[in-house]
Design a protein around this nucleic acid. Structure first.
Lengths: 230, 230
DNA sequence: CAAGCTGAAAGTGTCGACAATCGACGCCTA
DNA sequence: TAGGCGTCGATTGTCGACACTTTCAGCTTG
């Protein structure tokens, strides 16, 4: 047991290795739409831009490849993953699978703190909807679903959700707004939370299904409109 | 488009990049228990043994890290992931979530070919059980579940299942036999296939739950016995 | 004028090397 | 004798270099 370790609140000064930092930067660039689907991610160019060598860039690219954000083409390099309508469909299928489970599990272990967190997040979304801030709403939407997965108490499930969300952001990042009606997004979340608080598995699944079904249709429609008019 | 590419049945002679090969070798070593949990994976040693440089080894290690097989400890290297009872519990929770979905979906899209494949796999398991070949049974067991996930028609779901199975193999690989009774394993699979063929979602979920619940208890018990007596 | 060929430039796959850091051993001190 | 400290070896993190492959622009040719 360490005796003279820092008492509390260590600031974790600078992540030790460049790989994580590069991975983060690339991820940000992709989900923000700065690196559009199909774009080439040239190791040398990235390395030059960041003022480092190619080795950490390569490792970061591998990391993002395993997350589905990049696609490796041997001897040709890495490219930002292009998502077809089928890909989006698959991703939403998994989201359904994961979030049903997460919501039911979250209801089983719901603590007052979690419930409060979810309610607060819903308030944030309502406020953003009132102000009609599409970009922030997408972020708040993600956070709400993430909180549910967090409340499920399964770290791997949370990581899985993050991975699915990241991949979906490849396409969602392309547009500013996901829903036509900003108000609607907050409204469709309310029954989900209500069902979780009530704790009826069937109702939870039903509402999660409905909510994700709506989002799925929106995104699939979006992807099709994008791929048809390049 | 390449013109003079091999017509058919390419034997995939030496994958172009070493990274995949190294990743495969390391994965095999881990799931076969040759690299036990907690073991250090020294880059230089692996590189020397394979007669290559450290760069591909590093990249392969990153890959395996993102799959949960290795754990990166900054400035200290990579180690084979150690799974606690909680980890195993989490993994089985996800398996439940994934395989329920896969089985229901597989039932919806079941083709005669798939049904035949599942039946044949069950026959293989029965035969192995009769011969009492524990190691092969674990493999056949895995293949049966994998076929169900394949039949679900979602490539990502299949990859997810493979990832979960790989992680679980870290511990399963430690022992030769998973079940006390080799015959039992084949028996517990039969109702699952029957339910899929019948196509009743509730019955499918119920049988999958029961089957995976049995396996989960076995593995959790195993892990506890291993961690208590190192 | 279009299609195919040729050469150079750019980029990837891999390697060996160097500095920074971690762990271990032995030494010193109380 | 127990505990802390400094040094040494080993390993990681990062870098620049080289060979081979792919790409593309310009030229040649039917």
């Amino acid at each position: 047991m360490r005796a003279i370790s820092p008492p509390v609140g260590l600031p974790v000064l600078a992540e030790s290795d460049l790989v994580r930092q590069v991975a983060r930067r690339l991820t940000d660039a992709i989900v923000q739409g700065r690196l559009p689907p199909g774009a080439k991610v040239a190791e040398a160019a990235v390395a030059r831009e960041l003022g480092i060598s190619r080795a950490p860039v390569r490792e970061a690219a591998r990391l993002l490849e395993s997350q589905g954000l990049l696609k490796a083409s041997p001897r040709r390099g890495f490219f930002v993953r292009e998502l077809s309508a089928k890909d989006v469909d698959e991703l939403y299928d998994l989201r359904l699978c994961v979030e049903r489970h997460a919501a039911v599990e979250a209801a089983r272990r719901l603590t007052p703190a979690m419930r409060e967190g979810l309610r607060r997040q819903l308030d944030v979304m309502r406020e953003l909807a009132r102000r009609d801030d599409p970009a922030m709403i997408v972020e708040a939407d993600y956070q709400f679903h993430r909180l549910i997965c967090e409340a499920a108490g399964n770290a791997r499930l949370l990581r899985l959700f993050d991975g699915l969300a990241s991949e979906l952001r490849i396409v969602i990042g392309l547009i500013g707004r996901l829903y036509d009606d900003s108000q609607e997004i907050a409204r469709t979340h309310e029954p989900v939370l209500a069902a979780i608080e009530a704790g009826h598995p069937e109702r939870i699944v039903a509402h999660v299904d409905h909510h994700i079904g709506v989002a799925r249709r929106e995104v699939v429609r979006l992807v099709q409109s994008l791929t048809l008019t390049p």
